[in-house]
Design a protein around this nucleic acid. Structure first.
Lengths: 109, 109
DNA sequence: ACCGTATACCTAGATAATCAAGGTCTCGGG
DNA sequence: CCCGAGACCTTGATTATCTAGGTATACGGT
């Protein structure tokens, strides 16, 4: 529907970290959570989701473990690490500073 | 200094359009304006700036004309077109919707 | 007269994130 | 028994930004 989402660049990782701050979840569920909480404004494509998860895992901000969902399907459960928690704080602050800066330019001053 | 600015992705064009909405300016001055208004939070590298200007020109949202600055240096003056004005309105609304969506995920709900 | 700094423009190549579009497998319902 | 949805994965294309170079001119200081 919408043209490809450039704005998402760089914020996806933060969205994932924040989602996991509520508790462990598997990949697919993370995407659904983000969609739900944002009232479907944010749609995370699987082609972005899984690479992002590997990225975060590689950096040590999340870790993964195979498990079972309630419906007994095999799922990869992701969990926020301590480093991930710290990173989330930094990234959230960055996001906040960035949006405030952009708003200074964009809003009728 | 700071790690490369991923968050800027997609917003740079909008920042430029908005800057030109205040009146014509040349490229270098656009970057300085954005830095000043954002209290130096936003630093636009020239390697991003000029390609962005060509992009916007190609899309018909701005147009350019060679002229002279007050200091008599040759400068390329950019001006917002009508299409650019319309685009600015759309992009600003998109930005607003996007940040609200992200905030729904990021802020303690 | 000279030199450094800031102004002002430009470009090639590297990096990196997202998306589109394919694929596999399993569970549950009709 | 089949089909849709859940759940995971990957390859390739696109695209934006940055790094790091380059040119040229004006101006201030010495």
């Amino acid at each position: 529907m919408a043209e490809s989402n450039e704005l998402l660049h760089g914020t996806l990782d933060t969205l994932i970290l924040k989602t996991l701050a509520w508790g462990p979840r598997h990949g697919y569920a993370i995407a659904r959570w983000i969609a739900t909480v944002s009232d479907d404004a944010l749609q995370i494509e699987e082609g972005s989701l899984y690479p992002a998860l590997y990225r975060l895992e590689r950096k040590g901000w999340i870790d993964a473990e195979w498990g079972l969902s309630e419906s007994k399907r095999r799922v990869k459960l992701y969990r926020l690490t301590e480093d991930g928690e710290a990173r989330l704080a930094v990234a959230t602050a960055q996001w906040s500073r960035f949006t405030q800066a952009v708003d200074k330019v964009l809003l009728p001053g």
